[in-house]
């Protein structure tokens, strides 16, 4: 080819020219994006890639896990005992509250049976850890360490101790990606706990704020109102706290009020979340697998 002269360069590269290559790859990326954007035709590709890159995420997460573990195993006995005491008290308190809740639930079931309406079956939960990796800075996504092998599915709701956290968007066998309710492309159907007024809470891209854009000016809503999931849309189980209304701005010039709410869950502070299998949601999921995989997400 070039006769053993290492520095001599052929004028033309073999194969297609750089411009053609660039054009081809640009076209390929655009095709990929279009297919990925349109109802996730590429989910299998993405999940396979995600599985292949899982070791990277584990490697990034490892130092944090080790630090946590070391902190726990090296902390003082006295502090551990104190924490143990505190947790025991908390447990007792929760247990006491649960007893009352059990009685109420049984009463509710009896009443529902009397009224011939379907009873609510309790939900199954699984605790999973959020992996310490940063996803795109402006999108509120997290990676959790449970996947389809543990039964996670696309669209599954996530909770923490205080309320709804988000929903699973992509799964692979050992980990899942989830979207927080504060992501700007996320919306969750809610109702006001006080009077059952139904609306939709839309994420803003800010961890501490949700918008309720579809409430008319004369809607009966006040600062401090608790918003709970309404269960409409079938993705989230009904009755879990979502947010507390913080700010209402009723401008007579606009048809809709500007309502802001603060998420109940500690969206950017907790390290553990719960995956929920609710009977209602899974029934909808089984019945509607051919539909859009994110029924809550806005188009």
């Amino acid at each position: 080819m070039d006769l053993g002269k290492p520095e001599s360069k052929p004028l033309f590269l073999t194969g297609p020219s750089p411009a053609v290559r660039c054009f081809g790859l640009v076209l390929l990326s655009i095709v990929l994006m279009v297919f990925d954007y349109r109802a996730g035709h590429l989910d299998t590709v993405r999940n396979a890639l995600s599985l292949a890159l899982h070791p990277l995420r584990v490697a990034v997460d490892l130092p944090f896990t080790v630090t946590d573990w070391a902190g726990e195993s090296l902390s003082e006995r006295r502090r551990l005992l104190a924490e143990n005491d505190r947790l025991r008290e908390q447990h007792l308190e929760t247990q006491a509250r649960l007893q009352r809740f059990d009685a109420l639930q049984r009463e509710n079931e009896r009443l529902r049976e009397l009224m011939d309406s379907s009873t609510q079956v309790s939900d199954r939960v699984l605790v999973s850890e959020i992996m310490s990796v940063d996803l795109a800075p402006r999108r509120h996504r997290i990676v959790i360490n449970k996947g389809t092998a543990h039964g996670a599915y696309q669209g599954q709701p996530l909770l923490d101790a205080d309320g709804v956290v988000g929903q699973v968007t992509h799964t692979n066998p050992i980990s899942s990606e989830a979207m927080l309710i504060s992501d700007a492309s996320h919306a969750v159907p809610v109702e006001v706990n006080r009077n059952g007024l139904r609306t939709i809470a839309v994420g803003t891209g800010d961890h501490g704020k949700l918008n309720l854009p579809f409430l008319p000016n004369n809607a009966d809503i006040e600062p401090g109102d608790l918003l709970i999931t309404s269960g409409l849309g079938g993705s989230f189980p009904a009755g879990y706290p979502v947010a507390v209304v913080t700010n209402i701005d009723r401008d007579p010039g606009n048809p809709f009020a500007t309502v802001e709410a603060r998420p109940a869950a500690a969206l950017n502070r907790n390290r553990q979340v719960m995956l929920v299998w609710s009977s209602a949601a899974s029934a909808v999921q089984v019945g509607a697998t051919d539909n859009d995989e994110e029924p809550e997400a806005q188009p």
Binding site: S29, V31, F35, D36, L53, A136, R141
Partner: peptide, 12 residues
């Protein structure tokens, strides 16, 4: 994939 972005965005 790692960023959970649209597949092809950073590639482009």
């Amino acid at each position: 994939t790692l960023h959970g972005a649209l597949l092809g965005q950073h590639a482009l």
